[in-house]
C-alpha cells in the first residue's frame, strides 16, 4: 500500500476506535484499515513510498524496515507530521497491538499510536520514536527496541523521554554498553527496574545532574562511562570492572570484601 497520511477525520476515527477497544462491554471490531486509503480520511503524500505488511520480531526490525523507505521523504517535513505517523501506526497496528488469547486487543495510551501534537509527548509514539533512533544509531539501539513489537519497554521510555539524548551519541552507546546483554540478546536483568541504583532510570537522572558541568553532546561513550558513579558498577562489563579494580586498589580487608560483592553484574 502506498504511504499516505490520515487527515483530521481519519485521526478522529482512529482515536474513537482505540477508545472503543478499551470499553470492556464493547464487541471487538475489525481494524479500520479502510481509513488508510479512503479519501475521506486520508491524503496523498508527495513521495512514492510503498509499504508491505511484514512480521517483525521486534520494534528494531520495524525501524530497520522503515528507515530506507522513508529516506526519500523530506525528513524535516515528516518529522512532526501527525497524520503520517498516525497512519503508520494504524498500518502496523496488528503488530503494535495484536489480539490476545481472548481475541481482544488491549491498546496502550492513544499517544503511542496517534502522534501527540504536544512535542514534549511525541517521544511516546511507537513508530516515530523507533524510526528516529534506528535511523540515527542503527544496531547500537537494538537494546532499546529488542522487545516484541507490541511492547514498549521501560528502557525505551527512560531514554527516549529525554528527547535530546537522540543527539548524544556517547550517551546512547554508553547505555547500550551498560544495559544490553549480547549473550541473551536482550536487556540485562534489572536494567529497567524502577527503584534500584544503576538502572536506566537512574542513568537519565544522573546524567541530567552533569549537564551543567559537562557537554553531554560531545562526550564519547568512554567519557560517559567514566563519569558515572559506582552505583552503575553492577552493569558494567566484567572486563571493564577488572580494569577499574586495578585502578582502585582496596585499602582494607573490608574494602576488598565490599568490592568483591559489588563486582557482580546483571
Amino acid at each position: 500500500m502506498k504511504l499516505r497520511r490520515l487527515n483530521r477525520q481519519g485521526i478522529k476515527k482512529f482515536e474513537e476506535y482505540l477508545d472503543r477497544l478499551r470499553n470492556p462491554g464493547q464487541k471487538q471490531e475489525p481494524l479500520p484499515l479502510r481509513l488508510l486509503d479512503d479519501p475521506e480520511t486520508s491524503e496523498a503524500l508527495p513521495w512514492d513510498v510503498e509499504l508491505e505488511q511484514k512480521n517483525f520480531q521486534n520494534r528494531y526490525e520495524l525501524g530497520r524496515y522503515l528507515v530506507p523507505l522513508l529516506e526519500q521523504c523530506d525528513q524535516r517535513k515528516i518529522n512532526f507530521d501527525q497524520g503520517l505517523w498516525t497512519w503508520l501506526a494504524l498500518f502496523f497496528f496488528d503488530q503494535l497491538c495484536p489480539e490476545g488469547p481472548d481475541g481482544k486487543r488491549k491498546p496502550d495510551a492513544n499517544e503511542n499510536y496517534i502522534l501527540n501534537p504536544d512535542r514534549r509527548r511525541q517521544y511516546r509514539h511507537a513508530v516515530r520514536t523507533t524510526f528516529l533512533f534506528v535511523r540515527e544509531y542503527g544496531e547500537d539501539v537494538f537494546f532499546m527496541f529488542c522487545s516484541p513489537a507490541h511492547k514498549r519497554g521501560q528502557i525505551t521510555e527512560d531514554i527516549s523521554a529525554r528527547q535530546y539524548f537522540l543527539g548524544c551519541r556517547g550517551v546512547i552507546e554508553a547505555a547500550g554498553h551498560l544495559y544490553y546483554d549480547p549473550l541473551r540478546n536482550s536487556p540485562k536483568r534489572g536494567a529497567a527496574a524502577k527503584y534500584r541504583s544503576g538502572t536506566v532510570r537512574r542513568f537519565g537522572i544522573v546524567l541530567k545532574q552533569f549537564e551543567r558541568t559537562y557537554d553531554l553532546f560531545s562526550l564519547s561513550r568512554q567519557q560517559v562511562l567514566e563519569l558515572l558513579p559506582r552505583e552503575f558498577d553492577r552493569f558494567r562489563v566484567e572486563e571493564e570492572m577488572k580494569e577499574e579494580e586495578k585502578k582502585r586498589p582496596p585499602s582494607s580487608f573490608l574494602g576488598r570484601i565490599f568490592r568483591r560483592r559489588t563486582s557482580v553484574t546483571g
Partner: peptide, 26 residues
Amino acid sequence: LWSLDDTRPVRFRVKVADPSGDNGRL
C-alpha cells in the same frame, strides 16, 4: 528552530566547552 514548537516559549543556553576534547567539560 525546526524541532521546537513555535507556540511555546523557547529558551537558550550558551556553552563553551574544553577544547582539548579529553574530558567533555564545560
